[in-house]
Simulated scan of single mutants.
Amino acid sequence: MSFLTRLRLFRPTLAGATLRNQSLACLGACIGIVLSAAVGGLSALDPLHLMWIVPPMGASAVLLFVVPASPMAQPWPTIGGNVISAMIGVAFAHHMPLSALSAGLAVTCAIGAMSLLRCLHPPGGAAALVGLFAGASSSYVFPLVPVGLNAVVLVACAWLFHRLCGQNYPNRPVAAPATGIDRDRPWTFSRKDMAAALEEVGEAFDIDADDLTGLLRRVEQKALARSYNQLICADLMTHGVFSVRASDPPETARTLLVDKDVRRLPVLDDEGRIIGAIGLRELVRAATRVEELMSPASIALPDDPAFDLLDRYASRRVHTVFIVDSERRPTGVVTEADWLAILTRGLS
Rank of each mutant, 00 (worst) to 15 (best):
S2D: 15
S2C: 05
L9V: 03
P12D: 06
P12F: 09
L27H: 05
A37W: 12
A38L: 14
G41K: 15
D46R: 15
D46A: 11
L48H: 15
L50W: 14
L50K: 15
M51L: 14
I53L: 15
P55Q: 00
M57H: 06
M57N: 01
A59F: 02
S60I: 08
A61I: 01
F65S: 06
A69P: 01
S70L: 08
P71H: 05
P77Q: 03
I79V: 12
G81M: 03
V83A: 02
A91I: 07
F92K: 11
A93Y: 04
H94Y: 07
P97K: 06
A100E: 11
L101R: 07
T108E: 01
C109H: 02
G112E: 09
A113M: 12
R118F: 09
P123I: 04
P123T: 07
G131Y: 08
A134Y: 00
A134C: 05
A136I: 03
A136D: 11
S137P: 00
S139R: 12
P143E: 10
V145M: 15
L149T: 06
L149E: 06
N150M: 05
V153S: 04
V155R: 00
L160M: 14
F161V: 04
H162Y: 09
N168L: 00
P173Q: 09
P186T: 05
T188C: 07
E199D: 11
E203I: 03
F205L: 08
D208H: 11
D208G: 08
A209M: 09
D211F: 01
L212S: 05
L215P: 00
R218S: 10
E220A: 10
A225F: 09
R226C: 07
N229L: 04
N229Q: 14
C233R: 02
A234T: 05
D235A: 06
M237A: 03
A246I: 07
P249L: 05
E251F: 07
T252Q: 13
L257E: 00
L257Q: 02
D259Q: 15
R263L: 12
L268S: 01
D269G: 00
I274A: 01
G276R: 05
G276E: 02
I278T: 03
G279Q: 14
E282I: 04
E282Y: 10
E282H: 09
L283H: 03
A286C: 11
A286S: 13
R289W: 06
M294D: 10
S295D: 14
S298G: 11
A300V: 14
L301H: 08
P302E: 03
P305A: 00
D308V: 04
D308C: 03
Y313N: 12
S315A: 11
R316L: 13
V318E: 15
H319Y: 06
T320G: 04
F322D: 14
F322K: 13
F322P: 09
I323S: 13
V324W: 04
E327P: 01
L343G: 00
R345W: 10
G346N: 12
